[in-house]
Amino acid sequence: MEYKQTLNLPSTDFPMRARLPEREPAAIEAWERMDIYGRMQEHRASAPKFLLHDGPPYANGAIHIGHALNKILKDIVLKYKALAGFATPYRPGWDCHGLPIELQV
């Protein structure tokens, strides 16, 4: 008898290899399909609010690592506050006036 077959070995579909670059876009789609942002607000509709006001980055060029740092920090704060029981409405903004755009145009 093969005793190894009688052990309760772990079993899961959760893969060892993350393959994040391939999998993450599908996760974003799933979040958008379920309207995760809207569902979170609904879920905490009667909870006290935690209001983070987004500082508008300048609407010029692709994002750099500093933009990523800033938006991820904000997202960490808000997701934590949401889990901790707050309503966390968050409206992102962009700064659209000014010289850099005028000069580009």
């Binding site: 991820i72 997202d75 962009w94």
Partner: peptide
């Protein structure tokens, strides 16, 4: 793409 949740369909623009 960073996984940031927000009102992406309703941003404010100056």
């Amino acid at each position: 793409r960073l996984g940031v949740f927000a009102q992406w369909d309703n941003p404010y623009l100056t």
